[in-house]
């Protein structure tokens, strides 16, 4: 129980810190965000937040109801029509970087109220589904390395770059 309490305190503190860093500086809206929480096989992304704000104007396209923007999804609007700006607006504030741990699965199963926010994607899924989905519609870059260059361990696992299979003879002809 004590461990759980400590975890909760840490989570709340973390959320508070995030809040301070992302909301209270300057106008409260960062111009550039470095997305580096999940950089195992790729380098981080220097996300030009300001350019996206200028292009899209609508914060709700990425931040749902959290910034207090008018929600377009009628299902969300049932609760969040007038719910205003939330304390947490960052992606990682809600979307978990580890959505499939036994603890996360239990949390999701026991969630209260049980009706909404149930099928929430993880952080990596949230980034890619949001970014790639919109980039496809608006002809933005959609290739993996258009946004983040693959690093050494990425090349290794993909058997690409300096780890590419040796192709001295054509692979087809060597196959009987």
């Amino acid at each position: 129980m004590r461990a759980v309490k400590r975890q909760m305190i840490m989570a709340v503190t973390g959320a508070m810190l995030m809040l301070v860093s992302s909301v209270c500086f300057g106008s409260g809206i960062p111009d550039e965000i470095t997305i580096n929480s999940i950089q195992k096989y790729y380098s981080g992304v220097n996300f030009n937040h300001a350019a996206h704000i200028n292009n899209l104007k609508d914060c709700g396209l990425c931040h749902h109801h959290t910034t207090g923007a008018q929600v377009s999804d009628p299902n969300c609007a049932r609760c969040h029509k007038n719910s205003g700006a939330q304390a947490v607006v960052s992606c990682k504030g809600c979307h978990s970087a580890t959505p499939f741990t036994p603890e996360a699965l239990k949390l999701q199963r026991d969630q209260q109220p049980p009706l909404y926010h149930k099928d929430q994607v993880g952080l990596k899924g949230a980034y890619h589904l949001g970014c790639v989905g919109c980039h496809e519609k608006m002809q933005g870059p959609t290739g993996c390395q258009d946004c983040h260059k693959r690093n050494e361990s990425g090349d290794k696992i993909f058997h690409s770059g300096s780890y590419a299979p040796k192709t001295t003879d054509t692979p087809k002809s060597s196959h009987h």
């Binding site: 499939f100 699965l105 999701q108 199963r109 990596k124 980034y127 890619h128």
Partner: peptide
């Protein structure tokens, strides 16, 4: 999976 095509769970 970057797109969370797969959801792991019970």
């Amino acid at each position: 999976c970057p797109q969370q095509v797969m959801t792991f769970g019970h």
